[in-house]
Design a protein around this nucleic acid. Structure first.
Lengths: 215, 215
DNA sequence: CGTTTTCTTGAGATGTGTCAATCCTCGTGG
DNA sequence: CCACGAGGATTGACACATCTCAAGAAAACG
């Protein structure tokens, strides 16, 4: 049913997809690439409130203006549905709504984990947490559990990381350097990260060992 | 349908309803009183991640252990449903699932607003924001919009406020005193707040004037 | 290659946390 | 009715993590 009404849109890295407050008459899911949801205060302070990786969903049925800025962080391909058509499918096919509820509950859990990070973690713990989160999601795409030695590319600039973590860009940079000095991570170039010991990283993140994932 | 399977439970102020990780075989909605969801790190740092006021929902269909500590802040009455029975109703009555999806999306929006607060607002803005949020929800119960002069009771201790805001209890206390000195709020006793000018408070909260509520 | 953007590093300022003392407020028992 | 005690709240002094402002270095790009 959804197949019949879907269409694709692509965006270049850096492009803003919608601005908060704009009309948004579609919902979408990320096919490839990375996008962010963020809020901005009048004076320019910005906080990322969602990180959209492949398979993640954007948009809210039953609302027609965007509540957040949506930005493509990398080149991005999205699979879109007109909002009206999607809502019709939701009504005729309860399973779609159920699936969406599940995904929304997962997002809510992630948001709450994120709130703990923002409210109570130190800068070092924040960086370690973010790296762990990305490592996990990266591994999940390959249907693996991260453990022992892990390598991947950071999909975020230092500035995007600072928006994610509620820090300044400079503090992000300093703490990455510190974690590197301490042997927790290994950095090649600006973006390529190697984690010699994943458990050590989790410890630095301040999470209890299971990482809070209680699926 | 839900009527047939509901039952009530009540809790005293301060009582913990479930601990994170515990088995939780019911879902519930708050009838009266206030409860909180919070996460705790091993070393005791705590962050509130949900504030449950009357009509709010707790629990997650499709999961059987609690992801957060749930605590009664005041005396509390909850309307409960066995999880299994509730899930059955959800399947047979799509409307219930739709309603739950709507509520979950609202919670997600609230969580994201909260993330902006935690990540980017100053202590003074955090306090002003929290007072505004409570004033709004208080007014909403009476089907009003807060404006001009507003009065209500703070349902949270200083410590609970600090857990909400990602601050220490002392900073909360200092900033409340500062807002009082500056005439933004008026405090009688420990808990009773009067806001002489609601718009002034919103300004102090750093929110854009509409308060981010784009129903 | 030169230019631009992104990242790193430093020095100093500042907001919030920490530790500790004191003060309310209110309920309890003498 | 008052003294007492206990928990919550306020305030102060100082420490320290993070921010700010600024200069350079390293990639990325044309």
């Amino acid at each position: 049913m959804l197949e019949a009404i879907k269409f694709y849109r692509s965006f270049e890295a850096g492009q803003t997809i919608v601005w908060s407050g704009d009309r948004m008459d579609f919902v979408a899911s990320v096919v490839s690439g990375i996008a962010t949801l963020s809020q901005t205060m009048e004076d320019g302070r910005r906080q990322m409130v969602g990180l959209l990786l492949p398979s993640d969903f954007v948009g809210r049925p039953g609302r027609d203006t965007a509540a957040y800025d949506v930005t493509a962080t990398t080149d991005l391909l999205m699979c879109c549905f007109r909002k009206k058509a999607f809502e019709d499918v939701m009504i005729s096919t309860p399973h779609v709504g159920q699936r969406l509820l599940e995904m929304t509950l997962d997002e809510l859990d992630a948001a709450r984990e994120w709130m703990l990070l923002l409210g109570r973690k130190t800068a070092r713990e924040k960086i370690a947490s973010l790296i762990a989160i990305i490592a996990r999601r990266d591994a999940a795409l390959k249907l693996m559990e991260p453990q022992g030695r892990v390598s991947f590319d950071l999909p975020l600039s230092r500035e995007a990381m600072s928006d994610y973590l509620g820090l300044t860009l400079e503090t992000v940079s300093r703490q990455i350097s510190a974690l590197r000095r301490d042997g927790v991570i290994d950095v090649k170039g600006k973006r390529q990260i190697t984690i010699p010991d994943f458990d050590r990283l989790i410890e630095e993140a301040g999470d209890d060992s299971d990482g809070g994932f209680l699926t």
